[in-house]
């Protein structure tokens, strides 16, 4: 695949430099490592740190901002950051209230964040971790803890960031993150593979096929299926999400229709049209919708749909203002 890059080894740092240059009023780079933090005015709140491999932009750096995360540690493309990078980001974003790390549940991320928390503990820093496990296709019901963390991270960061901003304690912020994770589900499909900078795509998807239940690292899905009309694919996804989250008539939800990279707004709106139709039929009320590229797998064509069920507490936190260069809510609490 053609890519607009300089040297393969420099993509993460150069992209980070560009992001920080563009957002210099609100964001700054962490010295010596590939990490970014908010220029915070409020140091009396719990700080939220997240991170993971690169190639998912705007996740993770694009989730750093007001009412959202305070710092992001960035790894190489599709590889978790190393423990030292994570530790430096934790220290740069640290406040006396402590830090909550939001970690997507992939082996590399949990291991490296685990080592970083251990190192932080040696320096007497208060660090807690909440795992994001929203990807329904990655493990059956009953084994929710085994599931991968994917695009639902956006919603979980939103309400967790709001809780921190409102002055919740570290334990309370962690509880919000865990609750938001329990109430968030995602399912995705891919139409094309993606390629790491400097490589060929690592698998193929036939012209008349799609991959069901892929992760966010360009790996193949759980199943290859014959391509169908958008409405049929969306129906299959929504049925899966409603079933797994046990949604019922009268429930209120926030919806994210996420492009994995190449899928256009033209298509995403077609997808959401069907999401809205299906949920309306079941009397599930869509409180708010986000449509766009949030959690991508480089240039992969595909879509994931995330639903977060809102109770009163999550709804009120969801309504708090948030601003990052890639996600914002005006706030109407």
């Amino acid at each position: 695949m053609k890519k607009l890059i300089n040297e393969v080894d420099d993509v993460v740092l150069e992209s980070l430099d560009g992001f920080v240059a563009a957002n210099h009023r609100t964001h700054q780079k962490v010295n010596g490592v590939n990490g970014v933090i908010r220029k915070a005015e409020n140091n009396k709140k719990v700080s939220i740190v997240l991170g993971g491999g690169s190639g998912h932009e705007p996740v993770f750096l694009g989730l750093v901002g007001e009412g959202m995360a305070d710092g992001a540690a960035l790894g190489s493309v599709f590889a978790s950051p190393d423990p030292q990078t994570i530790l430096e980001v934790i220290k740069s974003a640290y406040t006396d209230e402590g830090t909550l790390c939001l970690v997507i549940n992939y082996a590399g991320d949990t291991m490296n964040f685990g080592m970083a928390s251990e190192l932080a503990g040696y320096e007497d820093l208060k660090v807690e971790t909440a795992l994001v496990t929203d990807d329904v296709a990655s493990a059956p019901k009953g084994q929710e803890d085994e599931r991968r963390g994917v695009a639902g991270l956006l919603f979980i960061t939103k309400v967790t960031g709001a809780a921190a901003e409102k002055g919740y304690s570290l334990a309370e912020v962690k509880q919000i993150a865990e609750k938001a994770n329990r109430l968030t589900r995602t399912m995705g499909i891919a139409l094309t593979p993606c390629s790491l900078p400097g490589s060929k795509p690592n698998f193929t998807i036939g012209e008349d096929e799609y991959e069901f239940g892929m992760g966010i690292h360009g790996e193949p899905g759980i199943k290859t299926k014959k391509l169908k009309a958008a409405d049929e694919i969306v129906t299959e996804i929504i049925e899966g999400l409603v079933d797994d989250l046990v949604l019922q008539g009268g429930d209120e939800v926030a919806v994210l229709v996420n492009s994995t990279g190449a899928t256009t707004i033209l298509e995403l709106n077609i997808v959401f049209r069907q999401v809205a139709n299906l949920l309306k039929k079941q009397n599930i009320h869509i409180y708010d919708t986000n449509i766009g590229s949030f959690c991508t797998s480089l240039e992969m064509a595909g879509v994931s749909i995330s639903i977060m069920k809102l109770d009163n507490e999550l709804k009120s936190l969801y309504n708090e203002p948030a601003y990052t260069p890639y996600f914002y809510r005006k706030g109407n609490a």
Binding site: S80, D82, P83, N112
Partner: peptide, 12 residues
């Protein structure tokens, strides 16, 4: 390796 690799393989 731990400082330069990242990913699960960096730790392992």
């Amino acid at each position: 390796m731990l400082r330069s690799m990242g990913g699960a393989s960096g730790v392992i």
